[in-house]
Every structure is written in C-alpha cells, then in structure tokens.
Write a protein that binds this DNA or RNA. Sequence first.
DNA 1: CAGGATCCCTAAGGATACTG
DNA 2: CAGTATCCTTAGGGATCCTG
Lengths: 157, 157
Amino acid sequence: MTVLQGRLADRDSWSPVGRCPIEKTMGLVGTKSAMLIMREAFYGTTRFDDFARRVGITKAATSARLSELVDAGLLAKQPYQEPGQRSRDEYVLTEQGTAFMPVVWAMFEWGRGYFEDTRLRLSHQGCGAEATVEIRCADGHHVPPEELAVRVAGRRT
Amino acid sequence: MTVLQGRLADRDSWSPVGRCPIEKTMGLVGTKSAMLIMREAFYGTTRFDDFARRVGITKAATSARLSELVDAGLLAKQPYQEPGQRSRDEYVLTEQGTAFMPVVWAMFEWGRGYFEDTRLRLSHQGCGAEATVEIRCADGHHVPPEELAVRVAGRRT
DNA sequence: CAGGATCCCTAAGGATACTG
DNA sequence: CAGTATCCTTAGGGATCCTG
C-alpha cells in the first residue's frame, strides 16, 4: 500500500482532483464497439463497411461509433477517391488515437492471460521478441503494482 | 504498418483466432463502474458502502458490479468481523485483479493527456520518478506503435 | 453497514429496409 | 460502398424504500 493510496482511500469521492481521467475516458470510448473499432483502425482498416463487418456490428452502430470517435479526435475522416467513383471518406488514426493504443493492448494482454489464449502474442516486429504492456518509471525501472503511486500536483503524497 | 497488420486487414471478421481477447475483456469488465471499482480496489477500498460512495453509483449498481467482479475472479469476497458486530464481507483484489491494473492505468494516462489534466501523475514510489504505461519487448526495447505486431501461434506473421 | 426489491429512464446495439 | 431511418430488446444505472 503506497502512501497516496492510503490518503486517497480516506475520502468521499474522487474529489481531490475532480472527476478522474479513467471515468472521463470510459465516458468517451467505454463501449465494446468503440474499443474494437480502435483495434481495427490500428490493424489498418479504414472503410466503413470493413469496420462494420470486422467488428461485427450493424451499420447503424458503426455510423454512431465512428462519428463519436471522429468528434473525440481519435479518428480523422479523410476523403479519398477511386477511379470512376465518387469521393468517399475513410477513417484513420490520429495522434490521439494512436496514443490510445496502450489501453487496447493492455486489454488484449490481460484477456489473453485470463482466457488462456495461447495462440496470440504481441511481438516487437523486427527484433521478433514478445512484447507486453508494462508500467515503467522515467529512471527505467519496472514498476510493480505495489510500488505504483498516484500523485496530486504539488502535494508530497 | 506491420506484416501482421496487413494480413489481419484482409479478412471478414476476427476469425483467425475466434473472438478477440479485447472483446471478451470488454464483455467482462467493460463498464465505467466496473473500471472505477477496480481503481478503488487498488486504492485500498474494501467496503461496500465505500465503493458505492467513492465511485458515485447506487448500492444496487455497486452490488451488481461487485458480484460480477467476484464471479469473474478479479475481486475476492472475504469475511471480516469488527468487535461487537456481526461478520461482514470485504472485497479485495485477487492476482487476476491486480494483473488488470495496467488497463486501468493506461486509461488514466491517456485521459490525463487527452483532458490535459496536469495535476495528476503516476509515479514510482521510492525512486520518485514519473511512471508511464508502455509497451516493451522481452529484449528490453521500447516498442512504438508502428513496430508492434500481433502474432497468431505457429504462423510467421 | 451491507445489501435486496421495485420502478423508471437512457444508451448500446441487433434486424430490416431504404437511399445516393 | 457508405450510409440513414425505424423498430425493438437488453443492460447499465438512478431513485426510493425496506431489511437484517
């Protein structure tokens, strides 16, 4: 138990800093379909119908989710044109969207272990070694859960 | 774009390996309240009413979510007894639950940047340095998004 | 303190049909 | 291909009241 954990545990809500970033993040992209669309976008999917089919949701849901993700700035809508066709839009990851991927891969990794799915692995392309999601500090140490603290600006905690 | 990303992009659904771990994970703990309860459990909250109050949900929702998390094995229900009181239950993180924390902190980190919340920081207690969630390979390299690949067992990809 | 019961509202999302 | 529109079901979750 870290010092801060002890302090944070003594409170009525997450009041010290207003609403917690986790809560806000879940409010923005906290649905299964949004998470899977982000996965697809990372895999290189850009077309509306491909998202719908590969994620396994209806077009209505696809439309709603893509719009939300574009509005939130995780995806960008870009026009493209195939010869002889009218102009259409495709959806690509933005910088904010790419920054979101650790969330997706953390879920992937946990689910892989939890559901004992041994067929899948994250790997570092090129070097070929297995990759995992982990918490590290600026000094380069791996940070196990019991050594992780949350600091509120200014305070010592 | 990695090799696997290219290959995975050419498919109808996530068929090569059945349902994806991300999807299964979201099915299990993909609600805002479940995520916040996990945060609270990490902070050291163990009592029913504390969860309800600090997460900001009703007791009915608290009851439902805690039961699901216990059934899923992320939390364990343990009896405790205060002098002069009847026996009650408290909820503590299991190993599976602790393993889930990278998901929670990845959301925390992304939300912190996205919502520009500068008051909060993850830190490595003791060494005091800032901590972040990142993807690294077994050879010790930091793995940027463009170098990350997903491998399906046996296949080269 | 730790819930369960009941009622109600909203969002996610499936099914189906229709458009440019 | 890229959507929009309509209808319907289910789950999350608030409010309120009650119990051991």
